[in-house]
C-alpha cells in the first residue's frame, strides 16, 4: 500500500460519540433494505464497511446525512437527531462531508469554485477566505495547479481528490466515503487512498465503504461486514481478516481476497 509508514500518533479514538444509530430500519417500498442497525461511532474512529453488492452499504451511510430517509429507529449525528426537521438536517449536512463513487463534481464550475461554493453560501465565509481555504486543501490533495480548470479536464483520480478537498472545505467533523475508488484505474486508486490515509492520520472520523482491504488493514480500527441489510460481523481489522467468525464473512473474504 502506501510507501511511508503510517503515522498513528494522532489516530486517537476518543470517548465522545460521533454517530449513534439505534434500532434503525429502512424500507424501499416493501423491500426491507436496512434491518435493525445498531452502531456507535466514536470521534476519531476509522470504520470500513464492506459486504456483497446490494447489501445496503451505500444506503446505510447515505442515511447518516439524510440523503436517504429511515423509517424506524434513531440516528444521532454529533448530538443532533435526524428527523424531518430541516434545520437539523442542514446542521448535520454541514458537519458531515461525503465523497461519492462518481465524484459528482459540478461540471459548470471551476475546481476552485467547486470548493468555495458551499463555504460561501452555507457557511457565509467571505469569498477571499473561502478561496484561501480551498487552495489550502487543494495543496493538501496535491493539485493546487488545477484550481482554475474545469472538472471535465481532470483525470478520474484528480477529480476524486478534488471531491475530497471540496468536502474538507466545509471543515466537516465526519467524512463519509461511498466506494471512492471503484470508478478508478489502479494507478489512480493509489493517489486517492494516499489522500484518505493522510486524512486518517490527522484524526478525522471516517466511515468508508470500500473493497480496498489493504486500506482497511492499514487504517481502519474497525471493519463492519454487512449482508442482506444487516450488520453481520464487526471487529478490528486483524481479527476480522485473520479470524472471521461468521460463515458469510468467510465466504465473502474468500471471494474478495481470492483464496
Amino acid at each position: 500500500m502506501s510507501e511511508h509508514a503510517i503515522d498513528r500518533s494522532k489516530m486517537k479514538v476518543s470517548d465522545e460519540v460521533a454517530i449513534q444509530i439505534s434500532a434503525m430500519n429502512k424500507w424501499y417500498g416493501t423491500f426491507h433494505v436496512l434491518r435493525d442497525i445498531n452502531m456507535t461511532v466514536q470521534r476519531g474512529e476509522r470504520i470500513v464497511i464492506c459486504g456483497p453488492s446490494g447489501s445496503g452499504k451505500s444506503t446505510l451511510i447515505r442515511c447518516i446525512n439524510r440523503l436517504e430517509e429511515h423509517q424506524q429507529g434513531q440516528i444521532v449525528v454529533d448530538g443532533t437527531e435526524l428527523t424531518n426537521d430541516l434545520k437539523n438536517i442542514d446542521k448535520v449536512r454541514s458537519e458531515v462531508g461525503m465523497v461519492f463513487q462518481h465524484f459528482n463534481l459540478f461540471p459548470h464550475l471551476t475546481i476552485l469554485e467547486n470548493c468555495t461554493l458551499a463555504p460561501i453560501w452555507v457557511r457565509k465565509v467571505p469569498k477571499k477566505e473561502a478561496e484561501e481555504t480551498a487552495m489550502h486543501f487543494l495543496r493538501k490533495v496535491k493539485i493546487p495547479e488545477q484550481a482554475n480548470k474545469y472538472p471535465g479536464q481532470l483525470s478520474g483520480g484528480q477529480q476524486q481528490r478534488v471531491a475530497i478537498a471540496r468536502s474538507l472545505c466545509m471543515r466537516p467533523r465526519i467524512m463519509l466515503f461511498d466506494e471512492p475508488t471503484s470508478a478508478l484505474d489502479p494507478e489512480m486508486i493509489k493517489e486517492v487512498l494516499d489522500t484518505m490515509i493522510e486524512l486518517a492520520e490527522e484524526g478525522m472520523t471516517m466511515l468508508c465503504v470500500t473493497h480496498e482491504m489493504g486500506f482497511a488493514q492499514a487504517v481502519a480500527n474497525r471493519v463492519i461486514f454487512m449482508d442482506q441489510g444487516q450488520i453481520v460481523e464487526q471487529n478490528e481489522p486483524k481479527e476480522f481478516f485473520n479470524n472471521p467468525k461468521s460463515e458469510r464473512t468467510k465466504l465473502f473474504l474468500s471471494q474478495i481476497l481470492g483464496h
Binding site: D90, R93, M98, N104, F106, A118
Partner: peptide, 15 residues
C-alpha cells in the same frame, strides 16, 4: 442532470 448533482448539492448542505 444526473442524480449525483442533486445529491452532491444536498450533501454539501445547500438548501
Amino acid at each position: 442532470l444526473p442524480r449525483g448533482q442533486y445529491e452532491a448539492a444536498d450533501a454539501l448542505g445547500l438548501d
